[in-house]
Amino acid sequence: MDMLLSSPTLLASALASIGGEITTSHYIVLSALIFGVGLFGVITRKNAVVILMSLELMLNGANLAFVAFSRHHGNLQGQVFVFFIIAVAAAEAAVALAIIIAMNRVKGSVNLDDATELKG
């Protein structure tokens, strides 16, 4: 747990190394940041289109980590995985946007707060 508490200090020390050598950890921290930004968007926004964009951002954060690890380990598995993620993301975007259009037609709105039928 103290590891968690000390993470701001560690982040500061990572930032302090600007201009220095770039290690795998830099990429991973960056991927976590991008993921976090996307997450923030998903949680706070109500516009379905924007939420979808935030999701794409989260996927990109994960992609970054994959490519970084791929390089770290010196094989292509990570890049292949990213390839598939991009393919799935394309499919996901197509279907999700279609759903948004259908939702707009039915409800006259793309506000996700208006779509709460899926409750227990």
Partner: peptide, 9 residues
């Protein structure tokens, strides 16, 4: 983010 940073560093 804190979690990931903690793990990585």
């Amino acid at each position: 983010i804190a979690l990931i940073v903690a793990i990585v560093t």
